[in-house]
């Protein structure tokens, strides 16, 4: 019985490893492309061999030309804007979700409907009138102008509300009896229980902002305010693309979330039941 379980675990580890590898393969190829000349990347494309995936003559030239082109600045802008969106967005979305899940007030359904409709509207399709408004308020070429559209995320509110609804009401009531106000209940009881959900909401906010392209293009055209996806798109011009630099840019943009995610892994292994509040 125990041996069988162990065998099953080894099988699952193999399967998991294989799947992870398959997902990672295209990125590995991009990594290889970042570490060699464009000519070599395309020459080794066909027929497929090990050299398709391994740089024969490794070089850091692509990274050098990327950095020379001011990519560091763009990465920094992306990081700042995304970090600010995470902090402000989590605050706004988690309080709103708490309000919708726990508080009782007239118009609650309407407010919930507003939050739902807000994530049904294609942002890229309404970005044009919005960017004109932002320009009137002198938010062009500012970090604030880049951050704002990302902070009130209906998906994040929706996710957190669902989680908060699952927190046993008795906890809040007990705290109330102990004299805790709503802010106290939110801060001391709901938030500490919600780390996995907060990580999930953080993912939503992160991906929205880290991937943002059209909005920064419209609202932050100044070279000093360029974000990483726009800087990478610029490497593909009218007369061809610098594939090596594009792949190097992809590697760098993937690196930040990779590190952040590996760090936050431990919050995923933490569970409600583990903290002894359920069951």
């Amino acid at each position: 019985m125990a041996a069988g379980a162990r065998g099953g675990r080894v099988g699952m580890a193999l399967l998991g490893g294989l799947i992870a590898l398959l997902f990672f393969l295209p990125l590995w190829w991009a990594l290889a492309g970042a570490l060699r000349s464009e000519q070599e990347t395309f020459r080794t494309l066909s027929p497929v061999s090990l050299w398709t995936l391994i740089p024969g003559q490794p070089t850091l030239g692509n990274f050098a030309s990327l950095v020379h082109g001011g990519f560091g600045r763009a990465m920094l802008n992306s990081a700042v804007v995304t970090a600010a969106t995470l902090v402000v967005g989590l605050a706004i979305c988690s309080t709103a979700a708490f309000g919708l899940a726990v508080l009782r007030f007239p118009g609650r359904t309407t407010v919930f409907a507003v939050m739902v409709v807000s994530f049904l509207i294609p942002f890229d399709a309404i970005a044009i009138p919005l960017s004109a408004l932002f320009r009137d308020f002198e938010l062009q070429n500012t970090h604030l102008g880049l951050v704002l559209p990302g902070v009130g995320n209906g998906f994040a509110v929706f996710l957190l509300r669902g989680f908060f609804l699952g927190v046993p009401k008795e906890l809040a009531e007990a705290a109330h009896v102990d004299g805790l106000g709503w802010w106290g209940i939110f801060w001391r009881i709901y938030l500490p229980l919600s780390k996995p959900a907060m990580v999930g909401a953080g993912l939503i906010l992160f991906v929205f902002q880290w991937q943002a392209y059209l909005w920064p293009l419209l609202i932050a055209p100044s070279p000093a305010m360029k974000v990483a996806p726009v800087a990478i798109a610029q490497l593909s011009g009218e007369r061809g693309a610098d594939f090596g630099a594009i792949f190097a840019g992809a590697v760098l943009t993937a690196l930040v979330p990779l590190l952040v995610l590996l760090f936050f892994q431990r919050y995923f292994t933490q569970s409600l039941s583990g903290s002894g509040t359920k069951g």
Binding site: S131, A132, R135, L217, P221, S222, P223, A233, Q234, S236
Partner: peptide, 18 residues
Amino acid sequence: EVVPFDDLNSAVQYRLLS
């Protein structure tokens, strides 16, 4: 201000529209 090639016309267009 350098805009990615594919987006030059639309980017300029909308900034001028406003």
